[in-house]
Write a protein that binds this DNA or RNA. Structure first.
Lengths: 353, 353
DNA sequence: ATGAAAGCGCTAACAC
DNA sequence: GTGTTAGCGCTTTCAT
């Protein structure tokens, strides 16, 4: 049987109350008492029982995090940031993968809410009203989703997008395509907002395609649609799609970046590993995880522990364009420069032919 | 204030015990009583308080999982499998990222152990004795690590390696290189075991390099060492390294697979997205996560809930070679076939020159 | 600065 | 099949 508070109390010749205080409010004890208690606790290898203290205080010491799909490389990074920060603050992290089910997103969050003091919610699919209801019952922080009155960590996607457009414009591009992601998602709308602003400011022409599934296959599909559209650059909703675009172009003998430039979003680990390495807008995923915990902690520590409280301050994190190998000046009309052969099909476009 | 068991009891005109049983051992109640209680509970939106029941039963209903690094794409997959399976079984999942710190691996597991009924441990760095001590205190299941007397989920890496060697041999390769990962890790030793067996069986020649950091940069480094060694094929410790190898070869103008074949391990999401797509040995990561939970559950449900118990049955999961685009017959001595140009340097090796 | 006593909400013997 | 009773181990007024 594990040692309990009473054992330590006896050993340190104090009351259980004092032992409890030694862990919860050390400041209340006289230095020597504290020391004695701590020593006894250590000697007996005492650790407070979480269930018991939870029952007593009503706090669990846990925070929950819900993500739509852990196999999407975007999310583990957020989880990692959150876990590391939460751990620093002495909180444990309960993780749930909602498997991209909109209803699961909210029902699982409800479940989590009962076992955690607050929860971080990455729920691109759940409805606004579901989330509002959640926010009523528990402290929640949204990630990359804006909902009036609910705290959120946002990434300044629109700004990243404008940087991307400027980058392309500076290289000489005038006509470009956007391969869209989930139409209704905040992420996609923000990209479009920045995109339209950028395109207008630079007087460029935009072709919009999609929505596509925001994965490799979606990129394959999108690339197919882009070919022959006369654009000299493609911006994809995310890196996964951009990688699909790259792949389709490679096997169609379209040379990147000589014939067409490609820009992604996210800066996943693999963005820098592709050939050529992907130009992309980096998203501060780990930082977002950390920030979400920060916001939650502030809320939990704040005066009231209640449900709805004053203006929750949203946090907006910066994004940044990382120019790598998939962007270059557009081909001059007159010059005909191929890529060199890659996979049979490409050969028909090399200068050697 | 949330509704408690007593409220439901009153509303259903039964004792609190009966309400409790309705949730824990429904079979003990008469059908109509059960129904009445459940109805009352639903009407009052009653949910048992986890802390209270934990305190009473000594069970938390949580399982923990420790991984060394969530930003290594190998681990999120395991976590995902574990989370999904645990959730099915009614368990919540506590996640910890040990940030590759050997001591953290074991100390964090200890911490987790106090809040979970059992923990799944991916700890490539912790020492055997640390893990043994852990196993003494809690139910643990190791992943990809074998330790006498401790339950483990293993992947049959050696078999996958033999398949890889056979594949290369069948293509005509006779001389190949292995770029090693962490020297002491079970994963690396198993690969070597399969590798040596395969090489010997086929009468091939093996060059071993490393250890390298099992990441992209390690692959870059390894590739450099391989060039000029006269091998026609390279097997990398994992996909991350293989991708590094591919990248280095591409920028050195070495054509894959025409001049040299490359094989990875893991079959990460990105293995199929590289150009050319990577031939690799697929590891059943999600399945391993699920299996680990299975093993843990068996242990928790089993007769004794105690620490050390009878022969824990290890589970070995199959691995499989996925032949894709980075393996091909070795170049015939006489024929000189390039890749076509890719990046300036490559041009000097194309037939056109 | 420290202690005594009363719960926190639920479960598990043990009766009936 | 259902109720009574006694904790699970800790925190917290309230006294001293």
């Amino acid at each position: 049987m594990r040692t309990k508070i009473h054992d330590v109390a006896r050993s340190a010749r104090v009351s259980p109350t004092t032992v409890s205080r030694a862990f919860v409010r050390p400041a209340l004890l006289r230095a020597d008492t504290l020391e004695r208690v701590l020593a006894a606790a250590k000697a007996l290898d005492y650790h407070p029982n979480r269930a018991a203290s939870s029952l007593s205080t009503g706090k669990t010491g846990n925070i929950g995090i819900v993500v739509p799909d852990l196999s999407n490389p975007f999310y583990p990074a957020i989880v990692r940031g959150a876990q590391l920060r939460a751990h620093q603050a002495g909180y444990a992290v309960l993780l749930v993968d909602s498997d991209e089910d909109p209803d699961a997103e909210s029902s699982l969050t409800h479940t989590l809410a009962k076992q955690a003091d607050g929860v971080i919610v990455c729920a691109p699919f759940a409805s606004d009203s579901q989330l509002r209801r959640l926010a009523q019952k528990t402290a929640i922080v949204l990630v990359n989703r804006r909902l009036g009155g609910v705290a959120a960590v946002l990434m300044d996607v629109a700004h990243g997008m404008r940087q991307a457009v400027s980058h392309l414009h500076a290289l000489g591009h005038r006509r470009c395509a956007y391969l869209g992601g989930p139409r209704a998602s905040w992420s996609n709308r923000e990209r479009l907002r920045g995109l339209h602003a950028g395109i207008r400011a630079k007087g460029m022409t935009l072709l919009e395609f999609g929505p596509f599934e925001p994965k490799f296959d979606g990129g394959l599909e999108g690339a197919e649609r882009v070919i022959g559209s006369g654009v000299t650059a493609v911006i994809a909703y995310n890196d996964l799609m951009a990688l699909g675009v790259l792949s389709h172009f490679a096997s169609s003998g379209v040379c990147v970046p000589r014939e067409i430039s490609v820009v992604g979003f996210d800066d996943l680990l693999f963005a820098s590993m592709s050939a050529p390495p992907l130009t992309t807008v980096s998203m501060p995923m780990e930082a977002a995880g950390r920030a979400a915990v920060e916001l939650l902690l502030a809320r939990l520590t704040g005066d009231d522990g209640g449900a709805v409280n004053a203006t929750p301050s949203d946090l907006e994190l910066a994004t940044q364009l990382i120019a790598r190998g998939t962007t270059a000046p557009p081909p001059a009309i007159s010059s005909f420069a191929g890529c060199g052969a890659r996979e049979g099909a490409a050969i028909s476009r090399t200068p050697a032919e």
